[in-house]
Write a protein that binds this DNA or RNA. Sequence first.
DNA 1: ATTTCTTTTGTCAAAAAGACAATAATATGG
DNA 2: CCATATTATTGTCTTTTTGACAAAAGAAAT
Lengths: 302, 302
Amino acid sequence: MDQLLALKYFCKVAETGSFTAAATAFSVPPSSISRRISDLETNLGTHLLTRSTRVVKLTEIGTAYLEQVKEILVQLELSNESVKSYQSSPMGQLRISSMVSFGERKLFPLLDQFSALYPDITLDISLSDELSSLANDDIDVAIRGGYAPDERIHAIKLMPNEFIPVASPAYLSAMGTPQDGFELRNRQGLFFRTPRGPSPWLLEINDQWHDVSGQPAVISNNANWLMKQGLEGKGIMIAPRWSVEPHLVSGELVELLTDTALSVNQNPGMGIYLLYQKPKYLVPKVKVFIDFLVENLMGRDD
Amino acid sequence: MDQLLALKYFCKVAETGSFTAAATAFSVPPSSISRRISDLETNLGTHLLTRSTRVVKLTEIGTAYLEQVKEILVQLELSNESVKSYQSSPMGQLRISSMVSFGERKLFPLLDQFSALYPDITLDISLSDELSSLANDDIDVAIRGGYAPDERIHAIKLMPNEFIPVASPAYLSAMGTPQDGFELRNRQGLFFRTPRGPSPWLLEINDQWHDVSGQPAVISNNANWLMKQGLEGKGIMIAPRWSVEPHLVSGELVELLTDTALSVNQNPGMGIYLLYQKPKYLVPKVKVFIDFLVENLMGRDD
DNA sequence: ATTTCTTTTGTCAAAAAGACAATAATATGG
DNA sequence: CCATATTATTGTCTTTTTGACAAAAGAAAT
């Protein structure tokens, strides 16, 4: 028995609630649908549908089975489509989702180069700090801080996401340079607001984490504005190293307490991750983009 | 074309590295294997295997496809088996994995009752605080503190996992009863060692978390021994409410700082979760156990 | 009660998969 | 270097499965 065909029929019948509707959808006579599903039921030893000549309904077990089967069919189709497109040239629309600040500072500068390499790929980039799921199929790759959410999602660590305290020379000359982590509690702080509230300042001493958050001078979810405040000497901020690197080099910002373990969360494995569904790596446009990012970002900072 | 059959053949060939070996495994002539896989390849438009009459190897794309297909076949088989066993009576071996302390204090007292209800189910219980994955098929249900790790794993919150500070009356009369969360830092503490180190004491004030861990008098990963130390007045411990409830009732332990938000982690949604793979709920022995636990645990403490 | 719509069943044709033998290709052994 | 053995493929036939069309049975609506 062709179980796959039976499952497709079954899903369509459940969706439409009718054998004939499913039959027209597949351009086969209703009898075929009836026979396939009947075969499936005898194989499983259970009735999946209660058919009363006029109305078709799912049984309890049918409902549960349908849910699982639908997921399986989607996965298989995704794999098949990925393989089919494998040997075509990289082209088409590539949907990318990224954290706002990372997108602006690291991604955008690379994209011109990428577009020159692959002119047939149309980039569609949306920046957001919300955790949009990859499950809805409209995003090919995502860039997020954190970890892999699901086994089916493949995660590549692009670079570490080391958080360091920084301040402008003007601020430091006016207020003095802190010599100890606990001193931060009395300082003006510029805080980034995540979807889960403002990021605290955490200090690690002997595997113990202490909250040493300063007095909030500014709280915002806009990294550009926070950075502007920091450059103007409004206070101390704890920011990812990659985001402040240019200002450290130019001397506009100074790194503080370099020998102290400070962060905004207790998790050491934090990094910037490139996320995509495994089968998608077979799609040329996705593959070249992933390889391009890995090539251009991992060589630099890691 | 029966793609499912072709995929099964493909997996077997990849596994054995031989068409004939796969053929004998399925008790069909090798020509059938060859034809099915050839069909599959033409459908996908790609070669999955490089066959050189003597040795069969996977292509790059074949390797990737195989990995995905194997997973899909396993899922489908799991769903099918679950449905097949749906209308049988609850029986057979039921493998349960649980956190040690929860198993000893809450689970064991219920199991006699469960065994009386379902004498045909053989219980196989292993207690461990390690995070054993449900993916390897040898565990039917698991009980863990924390969250759902994967979309395919279904999680039911059995009860909250509220952590509260407690101490024995003897300790309190000798050392005094703390009136403020920050006072805890100067007290003797009994700490539970998780796989990620001793649990700190955290105090929440205005969305800010402060580490107020006491001076460690005892650190252990054995909850029974820690409890013994606590009952003997060796110090303060922060423990799940359900684990100390009997001692609170009997007066052997006293809850401290009831108006203060203390915990061992920053995550408010923490709870005791019952975990299982979705298709397993169709298996009677699993279903009755889950329903039994939900019935007997959620009514009590939640 | 009749009409209408829908599922099922019967029968036959078409397509797909299996069986068996023969062929081609490549390692291994002498 | 050649012969042999092993393995995948191809050709042909048989068996099984699926699709197609018509007819029948069942249930709701007019």
